[in-house]
Write a protein that binds this DNA or RNA. Structure first.
Length: 158
DNA sequence: GCCAACGTTGGC
DNA sequence: GCCAACGTTGGC
C-alpha cells in the first residue's frame, strides 16, 4: 500500500467540504498536469492513503487524511464545455485526463504547517519540500508519513 | 526540435 | 499583489 499527498485550495474545496459530503466521497477532478495524471491513472490503488494538503492559505499545511476508493478513470470535466477544466483537445475515445475518487478518513489533531515540515531533518528529501515543486499529487515515503502523523499528535512546540 | 512567450502555481 | 519556478504552446 502506498502513501500520497494531494493539494487543494480550501477556498475551492477543503477537508471540511469533503467531510460534509453525504457519502464523504469526492472525485478529485480538475488536475491538468501529466505527472499528476500518470500517478492517478497508473499508480494509486484502492486502500492507499493520502494527506489532504491545504495550499494558497495561511498557513499552508497538511490537515487531514483521505483514502483512495476508486482507481483511475477519465475526468468527466474535461468533456464539459461549461466546466472551467474543459479541455477541447481531449478526445473522448482517448481521454487525456484521469482522476481518482477519495473518501474522508480523518482530520488531523492539528494542522502540520509547511513551515514546520521544512524544519524537520527527518523529512529531508520529501517531494513536497523540493525547490520549485508544483505537483498537486505526489507520493510520500512511508517513514515520512509516519513522522508527520507523529508530529500531528504532539504539541507544536515539541 | 528549438526556444521565446505566455499561463499557472503557490509561497510569501 | 508579487514573482520565481516551471509547464505548455506555437512560430520558425
Amino acid at each position: 500500500m502506498n502513501y500520497w499527498l494531494m493539494k487543494s485550495e480550501p477556498d475551492e474545496f477543503g477537508i471540511e467540504d469533503l467531510k460534509q459530503r453525504p457519502d464523504q466521497i469526492e472525485p478529485w477532478d480538475g488536475v491538468r498536469n501529466y505527472q499528476a495524471r500518470n500517478m492517478m491513472r497508473d499508480q494509486m490503488k484502492v486502500g492507499d492513503l493520502a494527506f489532504f494538503y491545504h495550499s494558497n492559505t495561511k498557513p499552508p499545511g497538511i490537515v487531514g487524511i483521505v483514502e483512495i476508493v476508486r482507481e483511475g478513470y477519465p475526468d468527466p470535466t474535461q468533456f464539459d464545455p461549461d466546466d472551467k477544466h474543459y479541455d477541447p483537445k481531449s478526445d473522448p475515445e482517448k481521454p487525456r485526463w484521469y482522476l481518482v475518487d477519495v473518501k474522508f478518513k480523518a482530520i488531523l489533531p492539528r494542522k502540520v504547517t509547511l513551515h514546520e515540515l521544512k524544519r524537520q531533518p527527518q523529512l529531508e528529501g520529501m517531494k513536497l519540500l523540493a525547490r520549485g515543486n508544483r505537483l498537486s499529487v505526489m507520493p510520500v515515503e512511508p517513514d515520512h508519513w509516519a513522522h508527520i502523523i507523529a508530529l500531528a499528535e504532539q504539541d507544536p512546540a515539541g
